[in-house]
Design a binder for these strands. Structure first.
Length: 696
DNA sequence: TTTAGGG
DNA sequence: CCCTAAA
């Protein structure tokens, strides 16, 4: 299905040029199509984000895994050529579940990362994944999820998922106590183990909720994998900052790098990042387009702002319009995810996934493939740490960081469970795409952020952090965030039965089935994969700070603590994140966010009327300049539209009017002016050059 | 970029 | 407000 969808929608590119006289409907369709495509692209972008975190590996044969180098171990992803091969051998896997983990931020200091190298390994450069250990070999199951860098001590369940912590070694972690990742523990996960595959890192709060074995249509779900390690290319650490006094909107995520490097997230200074950037990008143009696409704006979560990233994406917003959009988005969206791509939208020639370490990375997960059903379970664990004491502190000169604010660091998010079903004959490429689709669906679907405190969900958005106690360190320990599927999105789970199996802990799961027809996707859609780029999830979070500047940032006291939390969303309907379908994507269009509505005040109307009386109805730019020059949010198009509505309003009965009532006097002037200028216009047409007389 | 209009 | 064709 997925593939088909893609095909249907056509990834071939935008339908471009000239349709001179397309009928409206035709144009619409075209638009729709474009949107769809954009959505896809977006999806990929999102995917990319996740992709970096997910490692999927399948072993075609037991032997290969054991002996081979890291690359060999990961046949699927390492080389392009291999990708397409049908290496996927699936064995019925146990219901092992893996947790996918998305790291929102990368806690580790740069230095650390370098040292650890574990993350680095994921990058192509470090093909040699030292970190990628032999773990793969052990299990019989075709696929395994292996994550590196797991804190040995912390491993709670070996079973399905490992939460690799990127942060290992980061000072923070050590301090935080629970989260110590210093040592790179390599863990092998057994397929069969179902129970909690979560590695606990840090305090209990951040533990991943256990995943429950899910029976997938009677077949043992294969473990695709899931681990998103904190590889985030990113800029480093992000601190989620909350100002106590402020409202929820105040939550900010700050990138540590910002301080250090002007480049911050935007300019990849790290080797790793650089690497990514270097990666061939097939789709810059598209990316830009995507970025620009309104779809990104939709939710608070995804923003176009991401474009701002200098490195990869050139600023798209030169036009006023764009500026406006940006503006408003920043203003209105509390938790926006900007700079999604800042860190590293990485495009792999190969589809971008490989380089991300899906297969290569040291921290990898091995997926188990079982028959045709692959199961991705995962959760990204989210761990927040804040504290002055830790290295984590912001070196930032900005006052914003300090005091009286709660700094939170979200290490990673647990991603809702994901199920994938794919035929054995499917190619690796198709598998990748499938996973991408699934992940994209989740991420792109419009996630909600849930806040948990001491295991309880905080539903009241209006309550202050102080009131909740979040500002207190002790409470911070029990603070957690969750990514929740957007309830609004309907999903059509292919396997409904599965849901029953899902434990309460599972936030959600998505099932994706692939069309039995591998051939279709392989060649035809191969390009699609290429387009995939993987932004860091971390970026999402990071972006937030831009979006939600809090007035109180500068406040005085600072309380910080380590937060680690990983929370399953119990109440989520499993079905919520369902199968990736075209419909789903179209829904994603909702992501696009429109400018906030800003009703014209009477004063503005007055100014508008006056200007139009003077200038006429065909010179909106002049009107704008004359009367709204300093109202950045009013474009000439807005003014024109307003005039249009004013005229309409003036013509209807007062009872039918809505909104702030406009003085009748003004409406009368509107009609008068409108009539006058209409007449003038008519005259002009008849007589080219009548005369210029101003009534007013 | 602006205009002009339909949505 | 959005989206676009045209200019």
């Amino acid at each position: 299905m997925v593939l088909q969808n893609r095909l249907d929608y056509g990834f071939n590119g935008y339908q471009v040029p000239a349709m001179p006289r397309a009928t409206r409907s035709a144009r619409r369709r075209d638009t729709v199509r474009k949107k769809v495509e954009e959505n896809k692209m977006c999806a990929f972008d999102l995917l990319a984000t996740v992709a970096g975190k997910l490692l999927i590996e399948k072993e075609s044969s037991p032997t290969s895994s054991s002996t081979s180098s890291a690359k060999d171990q990961c046949p699927i992803g390492n080389q392009d050529g291999k990708d397409e091969s049908n290496a996927l051998k699936v064995e019925p896997c146990g219901q092992g579940s893996c947790d996918r983990k998305l790291f929102v931020s990368e806690p580790v200091s740069q230095a650390h990362e370098v040292n650890n190298g574990s993350k680095e390994s994921s990058f192509p450069q470090n093909v040699d994944n030292s970190g990628f250990t032999s773990k793969l070999t052990t299990s019989n199951c075709s696929e395994r999820l292996v994550t590196k860098n797991i804190d040995h001590g912390n491993i709670k369940n070996e079973i399905g998922s490992l939460c690799s912590q990127v942060q290992e070694g980061s000072s923070m972690y050590r301090e935080s106590g629970g989260c110590k990742l210093d040592g790179e523990a390599k863990t092998l996960v057994k397929d069969k183990l179902n129970s909690n595959g979560d590695v606990i890192i840090g305090t209990g709060a951040d533990m991943c909720s256990s995943e429950h074995p899910v029976v997938f249509q009677g077949k043992p779900p294969a473990l695709l994998s899931s681990d998103s390690s904190a590889k985030a290319p990113s800029c480093g650490n992000h601190v989620l900052q909350k100002s106590l006094p402020s409202t929820r909107d105040d939550v900010k995520i700050v990138s540590r790098d910002d301080d250090e490097n002007s480049s911050g997230c935007t300019h990849p200074s790290r080797p790793r990042t650089k690497h990514f950037r270097q990666a061939p990008r097939i789709g810059d143009r598209r990316i830009r387009k995507i970025l620009a696409s309104k779809y990104w704006k939709v939710g608070p979560k995804f923003r176009d702002e991401t474009l701002s990233n200098p490195g990869k994406c050139k600023p798209i917003y030169r036009s006023r319009k764009e500026c406006y959009k940006r503006q408003r988005s920043q203003m209105t969206v509390p938790f926006k995810k900007r700079k999604l791509f800042d860190r590293s939208p990485v495009w792999n020639s190969d589809g971008g996934i490989n380089d991300w370490g899906f297969f290569n990375s040291s921290e990898k997960g091995i997926g188990d493939a079982s028959n045709s059903c692959a199961k991705l379970q995962g959760g990204a664990e989210m761990c927040s740490v804040a504290g002055q004491h830790t290295s984590f502190q912001c070196r930032d000169s900005h006052g914003a960081f300090s005091f009286d604010s709660v700094k939170l660091r979200i290490k990673s998010f647990r991603v809702p469970e994901l199920f994938i079903e794919i035929p054995e004959t499917a190619t690796v490429g198709s598998l990748k795409r499938t996973v991408m689709e699934a992940v994209t669906a989740i991420l792109g679907g419009g996630l909600h952020i849930g806040v948990l405190l001491q295991g309880k969900k905080v539903r009241d958005d209006n309550i202050t952090l102080q009131q909740t106690g979040i500002s207190h360190n002790d409470q911070l320990d029990s603070l957690g965030f969750t990514l929740e599927p957007n309830p609004s999105q309907s999903s059509t789970p292919l396997c409904t039965g599965d849901s029953s199996h899902i434990l309460p802990g599972d936030a959600s799961q998505a099932l994706i089935r692939y069309p039995p027809n591998p051939s279709v996707d392989d060649q035809g859609t191969s390009n699609i994969s290429a387009e995939t780029h993987v932004p860091n999830l971390g970026n999402l979070v990071e972006s937030d700070h831009d979006s939600a500047p809090s007035p109180t940032d500068m406040s005085v006291d600072k309380s910080s603590a380590d937060l680690k939390a990983l929370v399953p969303v119990p109440e989520m309907n499993v079905d919520a994140l369902a199968v990736v379908t075209p419909h789903r994507k179209s829904k994603r269009s909702e992501i696009a966010q429109r400018r906030i509505r800003r009703p014209f005040s009477v004063a503005e109307v007055e100014a508008l009327v006056q200007a139009v009386e003077k200038l006429g109805t065909g010179r909106w730019r002049d009107v704008k300049l004359r009367a709204f020059d300093n109202a950045k949010h009013r474009t000439y198009v807005d003014l024109k539209d307003k005039w249009k509505t004013l005229v309409h309003t003036a013509r209807i009965s007062p009872q039918q009017r809505r909104g702030e009532p406009v003085p009748q006097e003004l409406l009368d002037r509107v009609l008068t002016a409108h009539a006058y200028w209409s007449q003038q216009q008519a005259k002009q047409q008849l007589k080219p050059q009548p005369e210029t007389c101003l009534l007013f």
